[in-house]
């Protein structure tokens, strides 16, 4: 699945937060987006996934323009995001969180829920098996029946990744997956992302932990004050004086 972000812009009463940003994510590619705080990275994610309306530009997924669709519609096309601050369903168990994410559930229709119990039960069983696989893959077995709200920060990030997988997404946008995660779990999370990428899922990742991100992605884009100021392999980008300037200027040496 190919994601094209074309000249996407967003301004709040004259203040430009995202300025004509274009990024192309090829099939099965893994790309990082870095930049100082306030550079517009998270806003860009919201614009791409439909949580904010762009003033200008378009988002094209596999040749289909989705820039005017709702967030849910865009997700149904196979592009799913996670959040900087995890948004788990706190009062539901890990298993229920994952079950809820499965697409096209006949039991979400009330008529089926009441009058076609066998159809719904069969599908629940099927989804349950996929959930078991996902739980095993993410090594969340120990907490499978705990409330999601009680998980550690890192486990919540894993759960959000798991929910994205359950939707069958082909492109996943991760918003700071390593923030607030302990170093051991960062390694674990990285290896899961790498494994999923090897299966053909494309990733676009915002991250402040440049070390962990550089080991993961093939290409980095750098944002500063709403604009893309550099792109290239991690080695090229991190050697770029303009990038060093932006980071030091942004107070993040």
């Amino acid at each position: 699945m190919i994601l094209n972000i074309n000249d996407v812009s967003k301004a709040y009463s004259g203040l430009v937060v995202v300025d004509k940003v274009s990024i192309r994510l090829d099939d099965g590619e893994m790309i990082g987006v870095i930049g100082p705080n306030g550079a517009g990275k998270s806003t860009l994610f919201s614009l791409v996934t439909g949580f904010l309306e762009a003033n200008d530009g378009d988002v094209v997924l596999d040749g289909r323009s989705i820039g005017r669709q709702s967030a849910a519609e865009r997700a149904r096309h196979g592009m799913v995001r996670t959040f900087q601050v995890p948004r788990e369903f706190a009062n539901m168990t890990v298993r229920e969180n994952l079950m809820a994410a499965a697409p096209r559930q006949s039991g979400e229709n009330l008529i089926n829920a009441f009058f076609r119990p066998r159809l719904v039960a069969a599908q629940e069983k099927e989804i349950g098996a996929r959930v078991d696989e996902t739980i095993a893959f993410l090594k969340l077995e120990r907490v499978a029946d705990s409330l999601a709200g009680q998980l550690s920060g890192g486990q919540k990030k894993l759960l959000e990744l798991g929910r994205a997988l359950m939707t069958g997404a082909r492109v996943i946008l991760l918003d700071e997956p390593f923030a607030g995660v302990n170093p051991v779990l960062i390694e674990e999370l990285s290896s899961k992302i790498r494994e999923l990428n090897a299966r053909g899922i494309g990733f676009l990742i915002i991250e402040h932990d440049l070390g962990a991100l550089s080991r993961l992605v093939s290409k980095l884009y750098v944002m500063d004050r709403g604009r893309l100021i550099a792109s290239g392999t991690p080695q090229e980008v991190l050697a770029d004086p303009l990038v060093r300037e932006a980071y030091i200027g942004g107070g993040l040496a």
């Binding site: 996934t49 949580f51 709702s70 967030a71 849910a72 519609e73 997700a75 149904r76 799913v80 995001r81 996670t82 959040f83 948004r87 788990e88 369903f89 706190a90 009062n91 539901m92 229920e96 969180n97 809820a100 994410a101 697409p103 979400e108 929910r163 994205a164 939707t167």
Partner: peptide, 15 residues
């Protein structure tokens, strides 16, 4: 129940 807990997350999952 998912909507009660977090509506934005529900939208992010395509519902």
């Amino acid at each position: 129940e998912a909507i009660r807990d977090n509506e934005e997350a529900v939208r992010s999952l395509g519902k």
